[in-house]
Amino acid sequence: MKQLIGALILLLGLVLAGLLVLRIWGVTVLGQFTLLRSGATLLVLALALVALVVVWFGFFKDPRAGYDMRTGRRAQPKAGAEREEFSDLN
Rank of each mutant, 00 (worst) to 15 (best):
Leu4Trp: 11
Ile5Arg: 15
Gly6Leu: 14
Leu8Ala: 13
Leu10Arg: 15
Leu10Asn: 13
Leu12Trp: 10
Gly13Gln: 08
Leu14Asp: 02
Leu14Asn: 10
Val15Gly: 00
Val15Met: 11
Leu16Asn: 12
Gly18Met: 07
Leu19Tyr: 02
Leu19Met: 07
Leu19Pro: 06
Leu19Asn: 05
Leu19Ala: 00
Leu20Asn: 13
Leu20Asp: 11
Leu22His: 07
Trp25Ile: 08
Trp25Lys: 08
Trp25Cys: 07
Gly26Glu: 06
Gly26Asn: 04
Val27Ser: 03
Val27Phe: 12
Val27Glu: 12
Leu30Lys: 02
Leu30Thr: 01
Gln32Val: 14
Thr34Ala: 15
Leu35Val: 02
Leu36Thr: 06
Arg37Met: 15
Arg37Leu: 14
Arg37Gly: 08
Ser38Thr: 11
Ser38Gly: 04
Gly39Gln: 03
Thr41Val: 10
Thr41Asn: 11
Leu45Ile: 09
Leu45Gln: 07
Leu47Cys: 08
Leu47Arg: 07
Ala48Gly: 09
Leu49Gly: 12
Val50Asn: 05
Val53Gln: 05
Val53Arg: 13
Val54Ser: 11
Val55Lys: 11
Val55Tyr: 10
Phe57Thr: 10
Phe59Ala: 06
Phe59Asp: 02
Phe60Lys: 06
Asp62Trp: 01
Pro63Ser: 00
Pro63Asp: 04
Arg64Ser: 14
Arg64Cys: 01
Ala65Asp: 02
Asp68Ile: 03
Met69Leu: 15
Arg73Glu: 12
Arg73Gly: 12
Arg73Met: 03
Arg73Trp: 04
Arg74Glu: 15
Ala75Gly: 03
Gln76Lys: 09
Pro77Val: 05
Ala79Phe: 04
Ala79Pro: 02
Gly80Pro: 01
Glu82Cys: 02
Glu82Ala: 12
Glu82Ser: 14
